[in-house]
Amino acid sequence: MTAAAHRHVGSSRPVWLVLVLLFGVAWLVVALDGGNFVALPNLQNIAQSSVALGLVAVGQSLVVLAGSLDLSVAYVVSVSAVTASVVMNGSAADIPLGLAAALGVGAVIGLGNGAVIVGLRVNPFIATLGMSLVVRGILNALFDNFAGAVPDEFQALGYDAVAGVPVSLFLLAAVVAGAWLLLHRTRFGYHVYAVGGNIEAARASGIRTGRVVLVAHVLAGVCAAASGVFLASRLGAGAPWVGPDGGYDLESIAAVVLGGTALAGGRGRLLGTIAAVLMLAVLDSVFNQFQANAFVQTLVRGVIIIGAVALYAFREQS
């Protein structure tokens, strides 16, 4: 990629800088209170709590960069968590089958989103909101709480650590690395930026824009499903409320935008999204250390999201 193209796409460096700064402040504030922010259990906690949102946000980044949006991810998380735990049903031999089924369901829902957006030309907001309602209705009609169970072996994904690093972090790292290579080292990734930047121009220059949007949505579905699988392993089973309770739909969009990606598409970096997810996790951790009220936490989150995006808009203007 040339320097000019690089500049156009933007850099995630400012977001990482803010993350480092935030981390430093968190360290200081907790130290003044007599705690140790960088204690291994706390760091593990931050990493662990970033995984679920991080996986969803990677997929969300792909669709937002392509000029689309996915509001159905929260229920994809739920449906894949329930699918994994019902299919596995406590038997270690069924782990591969359960994984395949859960990721497959995510891919199918993503494909459905993409097909409605591309084929029927429905606005992505409405298409994925509609999909989210459809999935929610079916899921809640079939299950009302935990269903099935994941085998103990599978809970390793949620709880084990290798040399102090949680296993789930490797999963997130692998997904991020894969998505990064796809976005920045392949023709498809280049097309994603082109379609998100200006779909008419992309079409005129011979890119099959519909296919790009479709594939981005399938990948977003698979990423959300991976998050659901992780949550099932963490909770021991899947339940219909795991996705919406985590607020993964709006939170993932907030993380993408907080990471410096334009909501209109075509501009932003995947690693910015990851920095934003870590930022939110660091914030949560500080709030938890001080046992701050959950409502203060929500309020501050809202202010930070608006403030950050206003700052980006201001920087762009000047």
Binding site: L250, I253, A254, V257, L263, A264, N293, F295, V296, Q297, T298, L299, V300, R301, G302, V303, I305, I306, V309, A310, A313, F314, Q317
Partner: peptide
Amino acid sequence: MLRVPSFITTLGMMLVLGGAVFL
């Protein structure tokens, strides 16, 4: 004025209102 997309503005407002009123 701040050129924040309304999706983000009103999403943030939703969080702020929800947090503030129950606080």
